[in-house]
Write a protein that binds this DNA or RNA. Structure first.
Ligand SMILES: Nc1ccn([C@H]2C[C@H](O)[C@@H](COP(=O)(O)OP(=O)(O)OP(=O)(O)O)O2)c(=O)n1
Ligand SMILES: [Mg+2]
Ligand SMILES: [Mg+2]
Length: 1121
DNA sequence: ATCCTCCCCTAC
DNA sequence: TAAGGTAGGGGAGGAT
């Protein structure tokens, strides 16, 4: 659909000529609110409206919204809406196609309201695509749609979203709570579906054609991920629109009032005083909604307030019925085993023992150890002991979010429902309300944005806000602002939130934990290091199950423990960047800036649930669907990619065929295969072809596939999701606008023109290349310049060949067009240059090859690397069964890496050097935003430096110490300037060559030593376990482990303690607090599984599934078992 | 010394 | 039954 829509837009645009001009937009005067799932997605409709002069409302406004767009019944909302205009989304697409607004009455969802039976003749869901496509005329469309009259308007919309469809007018809020609601929704939504599912009743991937859309419609993880991307983009849009802060007036008024009321004459002073202190530097706020999904859900189920509540798909009433061949206990133990093995690889031999032992068995002791410290968990008593939290019949439905009442009993987000019910028998469940979450999120962001645009979106329920400027401007104290802000959010959404404030993101975030439930906390320690002392390292950003375990094995549990380590020691043990971050974080130092704008680096779609293929054809069919999904996502954000990766989860050698979790992925090995294309693509067909080709390289039988994913990276194109070109700002635009130095813009033409041209050129070029490549690719391949051999032919299509040709071709083309100023480009440092190029490319411009680094084609097989490694290591252990499995595949498929051709790049480098000068002027000239972007890029490069520093390590460490690290564990980057920027020229730069001042500025000096340090450890690397950190008490668990094969009854309940320690065992549930990522074992819910053991806080989630990354590495090993 | 690929890990 | 997604930081190690 996205692709189709995009085409429609283009067509329209071309005909119209100026898209941006709202005055001409066909939807002028029309303001829509999208309710629920619609065929063109709400986001897509938003884009269409924005591009064509219309208005899009993120939440319904009775007075301003002119039309409500919905594919299925709005139910609740409908009742209350006075608007009679609930229209099928086809009205929008058909109007767009027609070039003018069609009569919406022909697209009304329903006529009368009372009946409220909408008329959805067709399938509401994605199904429509085909229909839409077919339907060209409005007439046809109309026919499809049930017309009728409008429903009546009625009441107002409730926030309630969708669920209660049919019900009448009554307000949903009153509806019964519980789960029942959920089903209703499903039914309604699905209604059309009506009996399908031939085969098994499950949602199998193969059998049920609707599986994909059904899965995504119900996947909370998919929704939060999607929403996260939406809000990051939303912040960008807000900033772009301009700066007006209506909230500041309210703040000023409020300050006056409150001051008077409160009476503290001093108060004001007080505020000021604090303000000064804070302002000296900066004041960062972290805002996070309290038990988000639950809070939103409770609006519809008010009678459940105050009691333990959890949001889940299952109700938890009926016991799960065991399937043939299922053995939860065994699966759990197997998972743990693998997780430990993986973790062990990363640890020093000396420290390994402990963990191992744990696994072996008893855990209790260990747990006790940990627990004690934390015992904090409030609650409970946790009974230690062992209550098996997971048994053969308990529900393995994950709890997305649970209320604070439930947390008192030890229940945690990500935990399985079954174990949670054992901890908290009175736990009530409520259904998901995805529409509600989005609505509340928009309100949250809108409110914050009314005060400042210095916002960094973290997720749909969370963000960082730099209050420095705001507080200075309004002379307000952080506390007062937080009070007003939180009250406004509560009033607008009906949901509580908490805010933490501090001198940097790290401390603000930690303050939020203290603030949590519905509170706020300002932390401005005089001595940061002292402030951090008693915090556990697991609370630091980037410290998850794996790193936490490694630190633990080194005796590092608290920040105080970590403060005893030198920078060099940390870098040697955990990597240069990670070591630097840890060094700073444990001292309360965090220079990361609150940043908004960010560029997407990859787009992917994966499904690791419900995958059960009976034959290759099933797998191929599903992969084709996924390819289309990914293509749509790329198209919707105007991006194309040059690297396609097929990611598979394959049942681990000894993992049971029947998974512990219904339709789950169980314990798996990860397999990845990738291909580099000569030219970027967003074509569904192309992605499908490449992907199917990669599939052929996989040796594992389709019957053992448990997960399938397709990722596209090395993106090009303009990022803006919104159709309007305006969106892009980026380096490119900058260049376009200003040309630096001698040549001003890189392109001779205007941006608009440029774009068009570029597109054309590109398309043509691509086409050409493709064409040539396509068919002959193979033959051509050889010709390639550098490494002619590279490619391996496989590329079916051309990749490789195209690459070759491509390069040459591209150069020619670009040159021919002469759109780009190579000189300018060349002048830039390599890094920068590449960025610029990439951006241009994204937009569609072609750039001479020379400038670029070579593309290469090649296809590489992925994942094996570990396996391969492991192989070597494993080799020893024979294990390997696994080895065979995974590794083999990889090997087989494996192709030589592509070399990156850089032959040309060399030239560019020379140029680059000269650039340095350019840079300076450049930077100055560049808008702040661009500068930011550039900086980021540079930062990356810096990383390398960081690594070096590590090596140099010891020395530098000391020097760096303090201020340096900003970035969280991750990479870092950041340091913007770290301390002294190396002046423009850094010595390093030289080394880097390409980088120029920018780089230096951004980066700190470092060089990377790179690998060295870790090497020591490396040999053994590999396993890891997941870890989860939990919020406070969490749980970790350990599981007993036994022999891989079957062990005792699940129950091995572990003491809570165990859990903690053991966390090790794998977290069954990756998402659980401690959990592992998904990878390996059964699934996640580590806690759940674990639960049996114990639980409370520390329990680790073991997920039955897989271990996080294990699959690959472990996979190999695991195979052993 | 760098660059680039291939993963793992973390987070919501 | 249950809906185990997804993007980006970062380390290791090979290629240049
Ligand atoms: N394992 C997880 C963790 C989170 N979420 C979803 C549901 C949460 O409501 C939302 C936000 O995550 P938070 O970490 O902010 O958790 P909550 O908002 O639920 O609780 P808290 O009050 O601790 O923020 O993301 C999820 O589906 N699965
Ligand atoms: Mg939250
Ligand atoms: Mg959150």
């Amino acid at each position: 659909m996205a692709a189709k829509i995009a085409k429609l837009e283009k067509q329209y645009e071309s005909s119209t000529s100026n898209i941006n001009d709202n005055s001409q937009g066909i939807f002028r005067g029309i303001a829509i609110f999208v309710n629920g799932y619609t065929e063109p997605t709400g986001e897509e409709l938003k884009r269409i409206m924005m591009v064509n002069g219309g208005t899009y409302h993120h939440y319904y406004s009775r007075s301003k919204t002119t039309h409500i767009i919905a594919s299925n019944l709005p139910d609740t909302k409908v009742k209350n809406m006075n608007t009679e205009r609930i229209v099928n989304p086809k009205w929008i697409t058909d109007s767009l196609r027609a070039g003018h607004v069609l009569d919406y009455t022909k697209y009304l969802l329903y006529t009368n309201q009372s009946g409220s039976q909408p008329k959805l003749p067709f399938k509401p869901l994605s199904v429509d695509k085909n229909e839409k496509m077919r339907l060209d005329t409005s007439s046809s469309v109309s026919s499809d749609i049930a017309v009728d009259h409008k429903m009546q308007s009625s009441v107002e919309m409730h926030e309630a979203s969708s669920n209660d469809l049919k019900l009448n007018i009554t307000d949903t809020s009153n509806l019964t709570a519980d789960n029942s609601g959920d089903k209703t929704n499903l039914d309604t939504t699905k209604n059309q579906t009506t009996g399908e599912s031939p085969t098994k009743g499950h949602a199998m991937s193969t059998a049920n054609p609707k599986f994909l859309s059904e899965f995504y419609n119900n996947s909370r993880l998919h929704h939060i991920s999607t929403m996260g991307a939406i809000f990051k983009q939303y912040v960008n849009e807000i900033k772009r629109k301009g700066s007006s802060f209506p909230g500041r007036k309210r703040l000023m008024e409020w300050l006056k009032t409150s001051t008077k009321n409160t009476i503290k004459p001093e108060g004001s002073h007080h505020h000021l005083d604090k303000g000064f202190k804070l302002r000296s530097k900066r004041v960062i706020m972290h805002i996070d909604m309290d038990c988000f999904f639950v809070s939103v859900g409770l609006r519809k189920h008010p009678h459940l307030r105050g009691i333990p509540v959890a949001v889940t798909h299952a109700k938890g009433n009926a016991p799960t019925q065991a399937r043939e061949g299922r053995d939860r206990q065994y699966e759990l133990n197997y998972y743990k085993e693998r997780a430990e093995k993986k973790l062990m690889k990363k640890m020093k031999p000396t420290n390994q023992a402990p963990l191992v032992n744990k696994e072996t068995f008893d855990i209790s002791d260990e747990e006790s150890v940990e627990e004690p410290a934390k015992s904090t968990t409030p609650s409970s008593d946790k009974k230690f002991s062992s209550i098996p939290l997971i048994d053969e019949t308990s529900s393995m439905s994950e709890i997305a979010s649970c209320s604070y009442e439930a947390r008192k009993a030890g229940v945690r987000n990500g935990m399985f429902l079954g174990p949670a019910l054992k901890l908290c028998p009175s736990l009530q469940t409520i259904p998901y309300d995805f529409e509600g979450y989005k609505e509340v999120s928009y309100k949250l962001y809108d409110i914050v944005a009314s005060f400042t645009h210095d916002i960094e979106a973290v997720s749909c329920d969370e963000m960082f806000v730099d209050l420095t400027e705001l507080l200075n401007s309004c002379q307000a104290s952080p506390e007062d602002f937080a009070s007003l802000l939180r009250s406004e959010i509560q009033a607008a959404t009906g949901c509580p939130c908490s805010a933490g404030m501090g001198p940097n993101m790290l401390i603000a975030r930690m303050a939020t934990r203290l603030a949590k439930p519905n509170g706020q906390h300002l932390a401005i320690p005089d001595d940061f290091a002292d402030y951090m002392k008693d915090h556990k390292v697991s609370e630091l950003p980037g410290v998850g199950w794996s790193l936490g375990k490694r630190l633990e094995s080194e005796g590092v549990r608290t920040c105080k423990d970590m403060q005893a380590w030198s920078l060099g020691q940390l870098q040697t043990a955990f990597g240069s960047r990670t070591g630097q971050s840890l060094y700073n974080y444990c001292r309360g130092i965090d220079d990361r800036p609150v940043k908004s704008e960010h560029m997407r680096k990859s787009v992917s779609a994966e499904v690791n649930y419900g995958i059960r293929f009976t034959c290759v054809a099933d797998a191929e069919k599903f992969i084709s669907e996924l390819a289309a999904e990914v293509a749509n996502r790329l198209t919707s954000v105007n991006l194309k990619g040059k690297c396609i990766t097929l990611k598979l989860k394959v049942r681990a050698k000894d993992a049971p065929v029947e998974t512990a979790k219904f339709m789950g992925h169980g314990v798996c090995d990860n397999v990845a295969k990738s291909v580099s294309l000569s030219s970027a693509t967003c074509s569904s067909d192309k992605i499908e072809r490449e992907t199917l080709s990669l599939l052929r390289q996989v040796k594992a039988p389709p019957q053992d596939f448990r997960g399938v994913g397709i990722q596209v990276s090395r993106l090009e194109g303009h990022q803006g999701s919104s159709g309007s070109s305006s969106s892009n700002k980026s380096v490119k635009s900058f260049f376009l606008a200003a040309k630096t130095s001698s040549k001003k813009s890189i392109f001779s033409q205007d941006t608009a023109e440029k774009k068009e041209r570029l597109d054309n050129s590109i398309s043509s070029s691509n086409t050409v290349s493709n064409v040539s490549n396509l068919r002959r690719s193979e033959s051509y391949l050889d010709p390639q310049p550098g490494p002619s051999g590279l490619q391996r032919t496989d590329p079916k299509e051309s990749k490789s060949s195209s690459g070759v040709n491509h390069t040459s071709g591209s150069k020619n083309q670009s040159t021919g067009k002469g759109t780009v100023d190579l000189d300018v480009l060349m002048a830039l440092p390599e890094n920068l240059r590449n960025q610029v190029i990439s951006e241009y490319e994204q937009q569609g411009y072609t750039i001479p090859c020379a400038a670029k680094s070579p593309e290469k084609v090649s296809r590489t097989v992925g994942s094996d690397r570990e396996s391969s490694l492991s192989l070597s290591s494993k080799m020893a252990s024979p294990g390997d069964k696994d080895v065979t499995g995974t590794s083999e595949d990889r090997k087989d498929t494996y192709s030589p890496h592509r070399t990156s051709t850089n032959s040309e790049s060399l030239e560019s480098e020379d140029l680059i050097t000269s650039f340095s000068q350019v840079d300076s002027s450049f930077l100055d000239a560049i808008p702040a935003e661009l500068r930011e972007e550039l900086r980021q890029d540079f930062e990356h490069k810096k990383q390398a430096e960081a690594s070096r520093s590590a090596s140099s390590g010891t020395k530098n460490k000391d020097t760096f110490l303090v201020p340096v690290m900003q970035a969280p564990v991750k990479k870092g980057n950041k340091p913007k300037e770290k301390r002294g920027r190396p002046g423009k020229l850094d010595p390093r730069r030289t080394a880097n060559k390409g980088l120029t001042k920018l780089t230096s500025l951004l980066q700190g000096p470092n060089n990377k030593l790179s690998s060295k340090i870790d090497d020591d450890f490396q040999p053994p690397i590999a396993m890891k376990k997941p870890k989860g950190k939990s919020v406070k008490t969490q749980n970790k668990k350990g599981s007993p482990k036994g022999s891989p094969k079957k062990v005792k009854p699940l129950q091995s309940a572990l003491p809570v303690k165990d859990v903690q320690q053991l966390c090790h065992p794998v977290p069954f549930n990756p998402r659980a607090p401690c959990a592992l990522p998904l990878g390996q074992l059964p699934s996640a819910h580590s806690q759940d599984l674990v639960m049996p053991y114990v639980l409370p806080q520390s329990a680790i989630p073991l997920s039955l599934n897989e271990m996080p990354s294990i699959s690959s590495s472990l996979g190999q090993e695991s195979l052993l078992t």
